[in-house]
Write a protein that binds this DNA or RNA. Sequence first.
DNA 1: GAGCTTTCGCTACGAGTCGTAGCGTAATGG
DNA 2: CCATTACGCTACGACTCGTAGCGAAAGCTC
Lengths: 234, 234
Amino acid sequence: MQIRTPACRTGRPRSAAADTAILAATREALVELGWSKLTLGDVATRAGVAKTTLYRRWAGKNELVVDAVAELFGELELPDRGSLAADIEGVVLQFAAILARPEAKSGLMAAVAESTRDDALRERIRASIVDPQKDLVLEGRARAQARGELPPQADPAEAARTVDLIFDVVAGAVVHRTLVSAEPADEEWVRSFTRVLLLGLTASTDPSGDSGPSEDTGPSEDTGPSEDLPGEHV
Amino acid sequence: MQIRTPACRTGRPRSAAADTAILAATREALVELGWSKLTLGDVATRAGVAKTTLYRRWAGKNELVVDAVAELFGELELPDRGSLAADIEGVVLQFAAILARPEAKSGLMAAVAESTRDDALRERIRASIVDPQKDLVLEGRARAQARGELPPQADPAEAARTVDLIFDVVAGAVVHRTLVSAEPADEEWVRSFTRVLLLGLTASTDPSGDSGPSEDTGPSEDTGPSEDLPGEHV
DNA sequence: GAGCTTTCGCTACGAGTCGTAGCGTAATGG
DNA sequence: CCATTACGCTACGACTCGTAGCGAAAGCTC
C-alpha cells in the first residue's frame, strides 16, 4: 500500500503514444462512421490498443470524442493582421475551416447535444474547447482597444457580458451556417458577416459606453485535450 | 392487387391518435432520458403502441425525433409589435423559450449532428424546422421595409444572401448561447443582441431612399411540422 | 353483409454493442 | 529484487436493434 498522493506515481507509466494514437483513431472513425456508428471497440482496433485500455482512460464515448475534437480547435491562432476587421475575418475563416472537417462537425455537435444532460461533460467542453476560443476574443478585443478601434470599457462586468455576447454571435453564426444551413462559410460570407458585426459593435459603443466589442472567436492554442499524466481523463 | 396510386388508399387507415401519442412519448423520453439513452422500444411502450408500429412509420430514431421536435418549433409566431426591434426581440425570446426546453435541446442538436452524415435527414430538418423559421425572417424583413426601417433591396440574389446571413446570425447566436454557453437567453441578453444586430444591419444598408408607409400584417401561422396523413414519414 | 386491403399488436429471433472481470505479462521506481 | 501500475487478451451477461411471421381489427367497395 502506498499513500496515493495525487501527483505521486510509481509503477509503469501510461503510454503517451497510445493517447495520441487513440485520439487520432477517434477522429478517423468520426470521419468514416460518424458519431452514432462509432464504437469504442472499433476505435481501439484502429489505434492498435486493447478495448480495456480505452475504458481505463476515458469514461465513455462522450469524453473521448471531446478530447479528440479539442485537439482540432487547438490549431486556432490570432496573428495580428493590422486591424480589427482583418483579425476577425482571419480567425473566423480559421474557425470555419476547422468546422468544415467532418470529424469536427459530427463530433462536436453530438458532444454538445449530450452535454445538455451531463454537467461534467459540458464543463469538459468548456475547459478544453470553449474557453480557449473565448480567450482569443479577449485578446482581439484588447488589441483593438490598443489600436483605438474600440473604446476601453470601465465596468468589468459589463465588459464580460459584451465578450460573451460577441462570442455567442460569432461562434453561433459560423456553426449555424456550417451545420444547419449546410453551406460554406467562405470569404464572401465572412466578409458580409464581419461588416454587420463590426458596424453593430462600433455603433453601439460610442455613445455612452457600454458595450463594446471585440471580436471573435477563436480558440487559442489549446489546453490539450488530454494529458496522460494526471489520473483518468474522466 | 390494386394500382398503388400515391394518393389512393383502401384498407384500414393509420391511427392519427397513434402519431400524436408517439410524438408526445418521444418528447417525454427525450426529457427523461436524453438522446443517447432514448430507445424506440421505450417510446413505443410510453405511447401504448407496438414497437413494430413505430418502425412501420419512421425509418429510425433520427426521423422520429426530428418530427417530434419540429412540432415544438411550430409554435413560433411573429405578431406585429410595431417596430423591427420589437419584432426581433419578440421572436428571439420565443425561440429561446423553446430552446430552453430539454426535449428541444438534446433532440435538435443531436439530430443536427447526425444530419452532417445523412443528406435525407438534413433535408427533413430543413423542410420541417429551418424553412418555417426562415419564412419568419422574410416576413419580418418585409414588414420592416414597409415601415421604412429597412431599405428595399433591388437584387433578389443579394436579398437572399442577406436573409440567410441574418438567419444564421440570429438562430446561431441563440443556439450557441443556450447550448454551448449554457446560459439563458433572457430579456437582457436579447435586448443587447438585438441592438448590435440592428445597428449592424441598418448601418450596413445605408440610408437611401425609403420611408415606407404602412405595414402589413399577418404573421403566418406556421407550417406545422408534421402531418400524419401522407404516407410514411420517412 | 361479403370480400379485399391495409394496419395493428404480439412474439420471437440473430446480430451487434456495451462495459466489466479476470488473468498473465510488461515497464517503471525504490 | 520487489512493489506498483499499465497493458493485452479473452470471455461474459445485459441490453438494443431491426425484422419476420402470425392472427385480429378496421376501414372501403360492391
